[in-house]
Structure formats: C-alpha cells, structure tokens
C-alpha cells in the first residue's frame, strides 16, 4: 500500500531518514486518529444534548417520572403536548399534596387538588419542568466537557449516556441518558464533588405520540432566551449592586423587584444560569435589629450563602457547590 505524503511528512522523511519513516508515520496517524476521535466524541456529546433539547420542545409524549431528591422519592405523571402552537406541559402528583403543575408556553401555574385553588408562578419559564438543558451547549465548552459514556436501557428504551463534566469545581457533574430513537432525555443524575448522587430524575415509562413544528419551536425558544438575557443584563447593570466575582459561563436571565410569596417582603432577584445549573441572588433591605440568615446552608444539591452588605441582606442560592455561592456572595458590593 502506498501512502501519499504531505509536504510536512516529506520534510519529516528528510529529517529522520527513510528507515524510521514508516514507524513515525504510523505514530502520527495514530495521534491524528486519536485527536479526531476525541473531537468526534466532544461534538457528539454536544449534538446529543442539542437534539435532546429540541426533542423536549417539539415532541408529544407522556409518562411517569420518578424524582429522587434529598433522600426522598416522588412520582409524578408527566405530559408534553401542543395547543394552538403553544407547548403544554403538565406534572400531576400521585401522592399528597395532590397538585397539578401546568406550563402553557411560558406561563406556569399550579392547581391544588384539595382546594381547586390555582396559583400562578411568579416567574415564567419556557424550559422543561423536569430536566434543565442549555439552549446552546456550544457556548459551554470552556466550562464543561460533554462526552458520550456508553449506552444503557432506561424505561425499556435504549439510551445514549452523556457525561457532563465540569472543567472547574464551581459546578456539579451530571449524566444524562438520551433515548436513541426519540432523543428525549429519559434520566438525569447530578453528582456532588465527592461523586455521590445528589439528585435524580427518571422516566419509569414513556409513550411518544409524535413531533410538531420542530424548527419553528426551537427558533422561538432561542429568540426568547436571547431577549430575556439582554433585558436582565441591562436591568442589572443599572442597579446599585455589583458582582465583583461573576462565575464563568453564567449569564443573567432575570432581574426584577418582587414580593416574596409568604413574607410579602420586597426583594430584588437576580437569576443566573450556565444552562445546567441555576443561581439566584436575593437582595433584601435589612430592617433594624433584624437577624437575617448568615453564612452557609446546604440542602442536597442546593447551597446558599448569606451576608450583610451595608444596609442590604444578600443571599446567593443555587444548585452549585458551596464554594461557588460563597465566592459570589463575598464578591457582592454596592455601587
């Protein structure tokens, strides 16, 4: 077999002599193949996630979803469909307290079955109720290594396992099991820094009825995402707060005044996200002689860090390691 040599290879032949050339060529080909394979794998992991995000928005499906969080288990009936071109997603509890959570486009509401009381969520969202996936996973290559990690069966369906490995210790690692036929994510796990499973969500069964207007729906999500990012960044830049430490890869998605549901206290709320993990920062006016939260708190995957900055009580909270919330909280200053 004859190999066509590139000018670089020819110069190597001259430099090394003909005897060593075949070995060197084999070595170089091996390196190149390994590099290409690694590239393929990285792109593949990214593509799987992109396909999963599109599939979640554009497919009509229903099934039973099991949530494992902080040592507790809950099972809910989940469905995703369309009504007049808008997405309708519902989660219905099978255990007390009985409730049905509905997302109609970006409007989220909950109906409590006991009282038939319907309450609207204070913050709309157009993202899935069960799994958080980035709209554009390409921008995350500095923060995460997205790679394929074998195939497994979930809910009697073959899935491709995607490992989402953070490149720093500011966020958690994840594994996502994506249906190889429908591209729907059927299972997701979040791992702590010590490798223990912090959260898990999994379809116990799934029925897919079809898909609808795939490109249009995804384009709508991308447009919405860009718009809210711009609005949030502009609003926050005009506020009196400054984040001296902005965690890499996180973008502002929401910034507004709001009244808390129970205490009715007015807070300013900044929501950041890196696509997988969300972080909330609450700025609340400190009342005289008030003893607010201070320091670190942990609940499963969620960590929070609170401190007082001047006359403001600040709490940073999210599904990230303790170090991340502490770094952000300690870097908050008043302009």
């Amino acid at each position: 077999m004859q190999l066509a040599l590139s000018p670089m290879h020819e110069s190597l032949v001259i430099a090394t002599g003909k005897r060593e050339m075949p070995y060197l060529l084999v070595f170089l080909l091996f390196i190149a193949q390994a590099a290409l394979a690694a590239d393929d794998q990285a792109v593949s992991g990214q593509q799987w996630l992109e396909k999963a995000d599109v599939a979640m928005q554009s497919s009509t499906y229903q099934g039973m979803v099991v949530f494992l969080k902080n040592g507790r288990v809950d099972i809910m009936k989940h469905s995703h469909s369309f009504e007049n071109g808008d997405e309708i997603e519902t989660l219905t509890s099978l255990n007390s307290p009985l409730r049905e959570i509905t997302r109609h486009g970006s409007r989220v509401s909950c109906t409590l079955k006991d009282t038939q009381q319907e309450v609207e969520a204070p913050r709309p969202t157009d993202r899935s109720l069960i799994v958080n996936l980035p709209i554009n996973s390409q921008v995350l290559e500095d923060q995460y290594l997205l790679t394929t990690a074998g195939q497994e069966i979930v809910a009697l369906r073959p899935t491709q396992v995607i490992a989402v490995l953070p490149k720093d210790d500011l966020r958690y690692a994840r594994k996502i099991w994506i249906d190889t036929e429908t591209f729907l994510p059927l299972r997701a796990e979040v791992y702590g820094l010590d490798g223990t499973v912090l959260e898990q969500v999994m379809f116990a069964d799934l029925t897919v009825s079809g898909s609808s207007r795939e490109p249009a729906i995804h384009a709508k999500h991308v447009e919405y995402h860009e718009r809210v990012k711009k609005q949030a960044a502009e609003k926050f830049n005009q506020s009196r707060f400054l984040l001296e430490y902005w965690p890499p890869g996180f973008e502002a998605l929401f910034f507004a005044d709001k009244a808390m549901l129970t205490s009715k206290k007015t807070v300013e709320h900044l929501l950041l996200s890196d696509g997988f993990s969300n972080l909330s920062i609450y700025f609340e006016a400190k009342e005289p002689r008030e003893r607010g939260l201070e320091g670190l708190r942990t609940l499963g995957a969620v960590n929070s860090f609170s401190r007082t900055v001047g006359d403001i009580h600040v709490t940073v909270l999210g599904e990230v390691p303790a170090r991340t919330v502490e770094l952000i909280a300690k870097g908050i200053v008043l302009r």
Partner: peptide, 8 residues
C-alpha cells in the same frame, strides 16, 4: 421536586 427555575 419539580425543577422550574425560570426566565424573565
């Protein structure tokens, strides 16, 4: 249980 962190 339900993760519903939202946008603007």
């Amino acid at each position: 249980y339900a993760r519903v962190a939202g946008y603007s």
